[in-house]
């Protein structure tokens, strides 16, 4: 089991690394677009739309790794009011809810993806973008996040381990 979750963690990290590359490419595209335009050359027609799709990838590819590394912001104002036993139960319920919603949205995204592939759907911006490339990062992100939440559920880690000094909560 440990090995499985280690592999899943690696995969999440790989998606996050891909998102970093995407951010780097966005910067390159924007700078190139400005340079080309100011040099009086033909502007890069694809740069704006490509950047926009890059932002979509930057939003979803890091999602599983942020689950793994506790990078998604959360608050605890009701949780804090509960006794320790109840909090332990609540914690598992939170993980279950996250797994459930990730699996559900992942499956909806997957069926959208399959529909997009079979229907040959595309989006029309400055270039025609195949729609399955829009659904791909979303599908991956939700399924992989479900697995990362499963890791918490099975007790490999806990979301709520903050430094006691920082435990002001809200």
């Amino acid at each position: 089991m440990d090995k499985l979750f280690a592999a899943i963690g690696k995969l999440s990290l790989a998606l996050a690394a891909a998102a970093k590359v995407v951010l780097g490419l966005i910067i390159v595209a924007v700078v190139a677009d400005v340079c080309v335009r100011n040099l009086g050359l033909r502007p890069l027609a694809w740069a704006v739309s490509a950047t926009e799709y890059g932002l979509l990838y930057a939003a979803f590819l890091p999602m599983p790794w942020l689950v793994h590394s506790k990078g998604h912001v959360f608050v605890e104002f009701l949780r804090k009011a509960l006794p320790a036993r109840a909090r332990a139960v609540l914690e598992k319920l939170v993980y279950l809810a996250c797994i459930g919603v990730c699996l559900y949205l992942g499956s909806v995204a997957l069926s959208s993806l399959i529909g997009a592939v079979s229907g040959g759907e595309y989006e029309t911006r400055s270039f025609d973008m195949p729609k399955w490339l829009v659904f791909l990062p979303i599908t991956l992100a939700f399924y992989l996040s479900a697995l990362e939440w499963l890791r918490y559920l099975l007790g490999h880690d806990t979301l709520y381990t903050l430094d006691p000094l920082e435990m002001e909560g809200l």
Partner: peptide, 22 residues
Amino acid sequence: LKIRSSPLYRDFLESLGATVIV
């Protein structure tokens, strides 16, 4: 001309030879 455009007519404005910014 450096024209502000929407995606709908950028192809056309570019074909005129203008610089187009969406």
